[in-house]
Amino acid sequence: MGHEDAPTAWEERAAGQATPFRDVRVTGRLAVAGLLLAGAAWVVRGVWEARLALAGEPASGPPDQGGGVHRPLTALEDSYHLVTSLGGGAVLICALLFLSWVVRLRDNARALSGRASKYAGIWVYAGWIVPVVNLWFPRGIVADAFRGSAPGRRLPASVNVWWGLWLLGMLSGVGIVYEDSTDEIIARAYTGVWPLLASDAAVVGAAVAGAFAVRAVTAVQVARMREAAAPRLPQPV
């Protein structure tokens, strides 16, 4: 990440005292990797949905026949189940890596600003799943940590792009958060694939924008920690 690869100046002060900061460079890199992994998984998912649309629905109808009856899956439908399962695993890995980064980001922001975070720690996790608050809490937590790290600095635009695309993918009902079963998604691909592909594009865009946001926020905090940990020269009398 450019200048982030320099030695960790905040590990110890010149006087040999340990600093209160936690290195966010590694967790930031891992979070970026997790986001790109999830984005790649959704690209593959979109490709499979396009393949389903091009293949067309079998004469036997959709996989879910209604009334609890499910016909045997075709080879393509079966592979789509595998793709969605692998995609779910990629999203889980991404979530764990991203949350690990956010936790360290908040801790460092608190040490730099000397004030408590605006959001209680439980919201780092619950903020993603509690209805209504999940529309703004996760972005708010990242923004609050950024402002605590660099007061007066403008929030990177990538943070807002990431969150806007995430909401678009989530609220579309066919993105990462949805209630339909995989078989129902397959039926949608047969009858109208474009909403699915639009939602996939939003999720992929959110992953890419999120990677840029993590890099930008991490870089600003690392610079502030270096500044705070640098030895202070005695002032001339």
Rank of each mutant, 00 (worst) to 15 (best):
M1I: 09
G2N: 13
H3Y: 05
D5N: 05
T8S: 00
E11L: 13
E12I: 12
A15K: 03
G16K: 00
A18C: 04
P20N: 03
D23F: 12
D23S: 09
V24C: 02
R25I: 10
V26H: 12
V26Q: 14
R29K: 14
A31P: 11
A31V: 04
V32S: 00
A38Y: 07
A41D: 02
A41L: 02
W42N: 03
W42K: 08
G46L: 01
V47L: 13
A50G: 10
R51G: 10
R51N: 11
L52A: 06
L52R: 06
A53N: 12
L54D: 15
A55R: 07
A55N: 05
G56D: 09
P58G: 09
S60N: 05
S60A: 15
S60E: 15
S60Y: 02
G61F: 08
P62H: 07
P63I: 10
H70F: 15
T74N: 01
A75Q: 11
A75E: 13
L76E: 14
E77V: 05
S79A: 14
Y80F: 15
Y80T: 10
L82P: 00
L82E: 00
V83Y: 06
V83S: 02
G88V: 06
A90R: 01
L92K: 01
L92P: 00
I93R: 00
I93Q: 00
A95D: 09
A95I: 06
L96V: 13
L96R: 00
L97I: 12
L97V: 08
L99H: 07
W101K: 00
W101L: 01
V103K: 00
V103W: 13
R104M: 07
L105H: 08
R106N: 07
N108R: 04
L112I: 07
L112C: 08
L112M: 08
L112V: 08
S113T: 09
G114R: 07
A116Q: 13
S117M: 14
S117P: 15
G121H: 09
G121R: 13
Y125C: 05
W128G: 12
V130P: 01
V130L: 14
N134E: 11
P138N: 11
G140A: 14
V142G: 09
V142A: 15
V142L: 14
R147V: 14
P151D: 05
R154K: 03
L155A: 07
A157K: 09
N160R: 13
V161M: 10
W162T: 07
W162D: 03
W163I: 03
W163G: 02
G164P: 02
L165P: 03
L168I: 12
G169V: 08
M170Q: 14
L171T: 14
S172R: 07
S172P: 05
G173L: 05
V177H: 06
V177Y: 02
Y178K: 14
D183A: 10
I185A: 07
A187Q: 04
A189F: 11
G192L: 11
V193A: 03
V193C: 06
A202Y: 01
A202I: 04
A202V: 01
V204G: 10
A206E: 06
A207S: 15
A209E: 05
A209W: 10
G210W: 11
A213V: 02
A213P: 04
V214R: 01
A216V: 04
T218N: 06
A219V: 04
V220Q: 09
Q221Y: 11
R224E: 15
R224F: 08
A228I: 09
A228V: 02
A228F: 02
A229Q: 04
A230F: 01
A230N: 01
P231F: 07
R232A: 14
L233C: 05
